[in-house]
């Protein structure tokens, strides 16, 4: 778990919760900072194997999921999530991040039911807008 000091966020009007599943601490720090500043409550998790437990524990509105994770890849986490494993909400919006912009990664993520796919390096604005869009179109 990465400790993110609170940013100057509008705490009284939180947009919702984002769970950031990413093992690269500096990326997690940067993304965490950005989303917090936009009014999100951000939790981070860095292990693929226990990611679904973290989803249950944090009950996020949006998940930002990296493909390369220790223990279990982001694809497997996404598959488990969409199958409702561990009692997770199967329809949670998931934004997947990968450094491999290859079509087969994208195809695989789409086949598994990813909500949105983004390749690194991305711009901060792109990421923030993607998370906002996903939360808006999320069911329930």
């Amino acid at each position: 778990m990465i400790d993110i000091p609170s940013a100057d966020a509008p705490v009284d009007a939180p947009r919702g919760r984002v769970l950031l599943i990413e093992d690269e601490p500096n990326i997690a720090t940067a993304i965490g900072f950005l989303l917090q500043r936009e009014g999100w409550r951000v939790s981070t998790h860095s292990d693929g194997r226990t990611a679904l437990d973290a989803v249950v524990r944090h009950a996020p509105d949006v998940i930002v999921l990296d493909v390369m994770l220790p223990g279990q890849s982001g694809f497997e986490v996404l598959g488990g999530l969409r199958a409702g494993q561990n009692g997770t909400r199967a329809d949670l919006p998931v934004l997947m991040l990968t450094a491999k912009g290859q079509t087969k990664d994208r195809d695989r993520a789409e086949a598994l039911g990813v909500s949105r796919f983004m390749t690194k390096p991305f711009s901060n604005r792109e990421l923030i807008e993607a998370v906002r869009d996903l939360a808006r179109t999320a069911p329930g």
């Binding site: 990326i27 950005l34 500043r37 390096p121 901060n124």
Partner: peptide, 29 residues
């Protein structure tokens, strides 16, 4: 090697934009 490179570029880009676009950032951050 490419994956590592892209990941790192990604952090550098995000972090650098934060610094550039957040003049009022607190000393801790």
């Amino acid at each position: 090697a490419m994956h590592e490179l892209l990941s790192t570029v990604s952090v550098v880009r995000s972090t650098a934009s934060i610094l550039a676009q957040t003049p009022e950032i607190d000393a801790n951050w």
